[in-house]
Write a protein that binds this DNA or RNA. Structure first.
Lengths: 168, 168
DNA sequence: CGTGATCTTCACGTTCACGTCAAGTTTGCA
DNA sequence: TGCAAACTTGACGTGAACGTGAAGATCACG
């Protein structure tokens, strides 16, 4: 668990701060940048320090969250993230109301597609996890029942023969 | 997705068959054996072929499933699997009714502990996934609402100014 | 009992996702 | 302006989880 020093002092964070706030390392951040997951802030004067904002903390946390929850590689994550980028683009375009409705619809439809792809991934995994959950729950109930049976005739003779096979 | 040739011809499978049936490679199977995830069938005459049964197919599939769903390393998976081993042991002992009740309770309690550990893992992940699911659903709803708004006054002038900020 | 497919054990190679060290540079601050 | 702390790029190292040969043994079948 990351040391949750959740007092984001606001803009102008440096890479070390970002690492601490997101619960990771500077190496990882540079690596993610290299992989295109964190945009390289193109106009950085080369050899000067990287600067970040609170939004970047959020973005990085979201990245790590998705990576963990969806169990995807950084490459696949990059694809999903490109969708997020597109959504940001959409938001920017939508904020200016001088875009023609046809284009607006296009952008929105695209965003919808991206969201649906992510949702499909999430739903599939959630379903599988739920299945596993139910299985474990069933096993647990069986074990607890056996314990209760055992406790019922405590101090007595042998308990009644169980007679039911436990599924593997 | 593994090519689901689900016609398990029954016992006496060889490593290639197991690989095909479980949707993986022989290398992976040997590796898992080396890691102690698949027991090495101790009395194999050294330099003879490995033999497997349909149960092993199940076990291997379960292994891959857990690894994927819980996102754990093979090491951690080994620990969880040791629990399964213990449960198998319990089942074996419980089948013979000549074990004294105290020991039975012990074994059952142990099994319960293992199951609870797995359940905790699963529940935590399921919760996180559900949170992500709700978030994506919300975003999707917003996008769809915008599309409907746009479609409502189609062919007309500009749509009414949205006036609501889209959360990042 | 020959033979081709499949398997055996080394052993080294590879990819991913970073860790780690080195040498020089930039920044915040006294 | 001086300086320590934090940063920069570059390069090599590492652990996990396999992939990929090589050289020989074994199996299943005609």
């Amino acid at each position: 668990m990351p040391q949750d020093a959740d007092i984001p002092p606001d803009q102008s964070l440096r890479i070390g701060d970002l690492a601490r706030l997101a619960g990771t390392t500077t190496r990882t951040i540079r690596y993610y940048e290299e992989m295109g997951l964190l945009p390289a802030a193109a106009q950085r004067p080369s050899r000067s320090h990287r600067v970040y904002t609170a939004a970047d903390v959020e973005r990085l946390r979201e990245l790590m969250r998705l990576k963990d929850l969806l169990g995807v590689s950084l490459g696949e994550l990059g694809t999903l993230l490109a969708a997020e980028e597109a959504r940001a683009e959409v938001r920017a375009q939508l904020r200016r109301e001088d875009v023609d409705p046809a284009r607006r619809r296009e952008l929105l439809a695209e965003a919808l597609g991206h969201l649906d792809r992510q949702l499909a991934l999430v739903l599939h995994r959630a379903e599988e996890l739920e299945k596993l959950h139910r299985e474990l729950d069933d096993r647990r109930k069986r074990v607890r029942r056996k314990i209760r049976e055992l406790d019922a005739n405590a101090g007595g003779t042998f308990p009644p023969a169980p007679a039911d096979a436990l599924s593997s």
